[in-house]
């Protein structure tokens, strides 16, 4: 590849490779056919694999996810697209009541190897209902795997892994990064459930996922300029949660800040802070801090910058981590 691909192209490549590798992989949703998806993640799939492998549906998310359940029950691997985070909500009942529970309900006799792709998060100047960070709803529901890449290589690898996984995966795509161009490494496919340390550091650990990873890295960069050495952990997978990597990283530094866009109350960030506090209590020099979105509906475009966790807010939290006066 001459030019570095965007995350959209990495995801498209993952779908294409998965469809080529396994004839039971089918892609469907709203506008995924001729249009190639409103973000073009499914670009060219109908042309390459035919209408039976990638097709548009009527405009009904409950129908899309419900039909995917049935197809997964009958030997296929559906990968469905929800057009935006908030437009997955009509499918909520199907996802919560069935996608998440059928495996358990049937003592494992019915497994649902399906993927629900959801572009999520803000920072794109979108109007209401186009910028939700909806991960907590899914993560709170036992039975769903919840995955979110922060790099193009992970976007490719995690989507391949999600499609191959025997359980249903909610695949959250940080749409703010859709157009980020990066080197794409097709191997190896990371297993779902493994966090990664993106940056080593000795003073404090920033824990982030999806769209907050680049922000955390920028904060670490800025902190380095100010004389503080921050580590950054990218979760990649919210469920299952990689306690081992996160705990080890925090123990190395004794201080931690969790960064996430979603409102902080009853959030994934809260779960991370609680787990880290329980597991690292005797290693911590300061309480674990959370830097999250405010507990408000996602703001209109002209106000979103006040809501999103930025470098300054992260560094303010780091400053608060009870450093000894030198």
């Amino acid at each position: 590849m001459s030019e570095k691909p965007t995350m959209i192209q990495a995801l498209n490549r993952a779908l294409r490779d998965a469809m080529a590798a396994d004839g039971s992989v089918v892609v469907f949703g709203e506008d995924v056919g001729a249009l190639g998806g409103v973000f073009r993640v499914t670009d060219g799939l109908t042309a390459e694999f035919g209408e039976s492998r990638c097709f548009d549906t009527p405009l009904a998310e409950a129908g899309i996810v419900g039909m995917a359940v049935g197809m997964a029950m009958n030997g296929m691997r559906p990968v469905v697209e929800m057009q935006f985070d908030a437009f997955a909500y009509p499918a909520f009942e199907q996802i919560i009541s069935h996608v998440a529970k059928i495996g358990n309900r049937t003592r494992g006799r019915v497994r649902l190897p399906m993927v629900i792709r959801v572009p999520y998060g803000g920072g794109i100047g979108g109007v209401e209902h186009h910028c939700d960070s909806s991960e907590a709803y899914y993560a709170h529901t036992p039975g769903l795997l919840v995955v979110t890449p922060a790099t193009n290589t992970d976007a490719y690898g995690l989507l391949r892994a999600a499609i191959e996984h025997p359980d249903p995966v909610v695949f959250l795509e940080p749409k703010k990064q859709y157009f980020t161009k990066e080197e794409l490494d097709l191997h190896p496919v990371p297993p779902i459930g493994q966090a990664v340390v993106r940056r080593e550091g000795s003073d404090a650990t920033l824990i982030a996922y999806g769209p907050s990873v680049p922000v955390a890295l920028a904060a670490a960069e800025q902190a380095a300029a100010e004389g503080r050495d921050l580590a950054v952990v990218d979760l990649r997978s919210i469920v299952p949660f990689d306690d081992e990597t996160v705990t080890a990283a925090v123990r190395r530094t004794g201080r931690a800040v969790v960064v996430a866009e979603a409102p902080g109350f009853a959030s994934v960030a809260s779960e991370i802070a609680a787990r880290v506090s329980e597991r690292c209590f005797h290693h911590l020099e300061a309480p674990v801090r959370r830097v999250t979105g405010f507990d408000v509906p996602y703001p209109p475009p002209k106000l979103e910058r006040h809501h999103l966790p930025g470098v300054d807010r992260i560094l303010d939290a780091v400053d608060d981590l009870q450093w000894e006066v030198t």
Partner: peptide
């Protein structure tokens, strides 16, 4: 007001008897 990104709805639905526009179909 909504489409220029200032707020989610710029008119008073009760006074105008026009429900707020919103995208969820």
């Amino acid at each position: 007001v909504m489409l220029r990104g200032e707020w989610h709805c710029g008119y008073d639905p009760i006074a105008t008897r026009v429900a707020p526009q919103a995208t969820p179909l």
